[in-house]
Each structure stands twice: as structure tokens, then as C-alpha cells.
Nucleic acid binder design. Structure first.
Length: 272
DNA sequence: AGTGCGACCCGAACGC
DNA sequence: TGCGTTCGGGTCGCAC
């Protein structure tokens, strides 16, 4: 679920609620989501405090005094802030307790999310962070860069847009939306995408992501960002999850196909 | 190096 | 109603 807009919304929401509070306890209830040594993980967190929250692609980066806590929500990870006295519910896998009687709780139905700690000076050399491509909302994203990256890719453009090492942060929802807005068929081989089409991909990515962040992300199924905040971008989706519904431009029914194993929605008429 | 596909998990939606 | 199957907003590892 969480794509860049959702992660950004979580970041902004949590920043208002958890900074500069002393961590007094850490309860790991499902250890496999933690990629660091568990004792070290706890030792680093307890007595520490979050000083800032950053984001790189879909990675949330919590800055501690001497370490970063990296968190990837994958498909269904969510953060909640609750009173420490509240009963722990199913799927709350990590509970960080603050000295003011509140908890930051990581909830993940499918257990796909991952967390790890890295020392401050090791962030840039951490593989997960190093691999991230250019942010869609960055001015460094140019058609020259995309053309170079697409050059040797025979994969469908849709699949390549999901490659975090090229553009970081686009997921299945916004990839469909970007291609619709750009008038590009999701099955078109990436190596055949033109400079003009790259310009369209860049312009529509910026527009769609900016708007989605403004709307607090997209809520599909039960996804809510932290604190029960619900995104509203789903009201603006043109093609994703709209199989059979009329295309916003030409009114013909939206098609659903599989591309690289992922559900893909598009308009046959507008995306030749 | 680039590509294809199963694996990781679970619950909801669907089909009978 | 009940039971089995399919699917998914993401990424990784492995085989070719």
C-alpha cells in the first residue's frame, strides 16, 4: 500500500507526535521483522529519543541520537500511537513505549515490513538506501536520466517504473496513474519509450505524487496511515482499481491485465 | 546484466 | 453456512 505519498503522510503525522520523547521500553512480539540483532536493537532504542523523521523512497528513517531506525512498511505496515495501557491487539509486532505513557506501535497484518538500525555515519552506505533511485519529486529526475536507464530494458515500462533503483517511491497504484496521465501503454518496452514520453512521465509523476501527498495518500482496503488518518487520493484515481468503469477521458471501459505479475489497469484507447 | 518466478505472510473476496 | 481457492498497495533470492 504504502507508496511514497503514504510514507510521506506517515512521516508528517508521526513527526508531530513522537519527537523528543524518551523511549523507556521496547517490546518485540514478532522478531522476524527486525533485521538487526535483537539485543542491540533494544539497547540502542531504550533511553534514546527520536530527533527527526526522514524519508528515502518508501523507507522511513527515524533519527535517533546516534543511530537511524529504518522502517519499510511493505504492503500493510502501519504505525499507531496508543496509550500504553491499551490492550495489545493482533498484528502489533513492535511496541515502543515512551516516558509519557504512550506507545508507538507497528502493526503489520502480513508481516512483510522490515526494520533495522544503522549508525548515523553508515546511512549512505546502507544497501537499502544506496540502491534508491531518484525521487519523482526531485529536480534531478530528467528525461536524459530516464532514457539512459531505460536503454537496455526490454521489460514493459510499467514493470520498470516499479524498479526502485530507477525512480524511488513509485508503486503499483501510481505507476498505473502515471502511465495513464502520460498516455503510454503499460506493455510498451521501456527501451522504446521516447524522450517526449519520458518528459510526460516526469511531469505526471510530479503532479500525481504532489497531489497524493496533499490528499494524505490513497486508502485502499483498510489502509490508514498512523493515528487512523485516512488518505483521500483514491477519489482521484483515474484507472487503478477501476476495471470496467469508464475512462475519465474517452469513457471506454478501463481494462485490467497482468504485467510482470502485477495487476495493471489502463485504457486501451488512450494508452496506445 | 537482464529477466522470470516463487517465496515471504495473512485476511478478504470469491466460487461452489 | 461452510470450505477451498485466489488475490494483493512490495521486495528479495535464485535460476537461467
Amino acid at each position: 500500500m504504502p507508496e511514497i505519498a503514504e510514507v510521506e503522510t506517515v512521516r508528517n503525522t508521526l513527526k508531530k507526535r513522537i519527537l523528543h520523547k524518551k523511549i523507556v521500553d521496547v517490546n518485540i512480539r514478532y522478531a522476524k521483522i527486525i533485521e538487526s540483532d535483537l539485543d542491540e536493537f533494544k539497547k540502542v532504542l531504550i533511553g534514546n529519543e527520536f530527533e527527526d523523521i526522514l524519508r528515502r523512497g518508501k523507507w522511513l528513517i527515524f533519527k535517533l541520537h546516534d543511530y537511524y531506525l529504518l522502517s519499510h512498511l511493505r504492503m500493510e505496515g502501519k504505525y499507531f500511537i496508543k496509550d500504553s495501557k491499551e490492550e495489545i491487539v493482533k498484528h502489533e509486532h513492535l511496541i515502543i513505549t515512551f516516558n509519557d505513557g504512550t506507545d508507538l506501535r507497528y502493526h503489520d497484518t502480513r508481516k512483510f515490513g522490515r526494520l533495522k538500525i544503522v549508525p548515523l555515519d553508515k546511512l549512505e552506505t546502507t544497501e537499502e538506501i544506496q540502491k534508491q533511485g531518484i525521487e519523482p519529486i526531485s529536480n534531478n529526475l530528467t528525461s536524459a536520466y530516464l532514457l539512459e536507464k531505460f536503454k537496455n530494458k526490454r521489460l514493459p515500462i510499467k514493470t520498470v517504473l516499479l524498479d526502485q533503483e530507477i525512480i524511488s517511491g513509485l508503486g503499483n497504484i501510481y505507476a498505473d496513474e502515471v502511465l495513464f496521465a502520460s498516455g503510454i501503454n503499460p506493455l510498451k518496452k521501456a527501451s522504446l519509450v521516447t524522450k517526449e514520453e519520458c518528459e510526460k512521465i516526469i511531469a505526471s509523476s510530479k503532479k500525481i505524487i504532489t497531489k497524493a501527498i496533499e490528499m494524505g495518500g490513497t486508502t485502499i482496503k483498510s489502509y490508514t496511515s498512523s493515528l487512523g488518518v485516512t488518505g483521500h487520493y483514491q477519489d482521484y484515481l483515474c484507472v487503478h482499481k477501476r476495471e470496467g468503469k469508464p475512462c475519465p477521458k474517452c469513457e471506454r471501459p478501463i481494462k485490467r491485465i497482468k504485467v510482470g505479475g502485477r495487476s495493471t489497469y489502463y485504457c486501451e484507447n488512450c494508452q496506445k
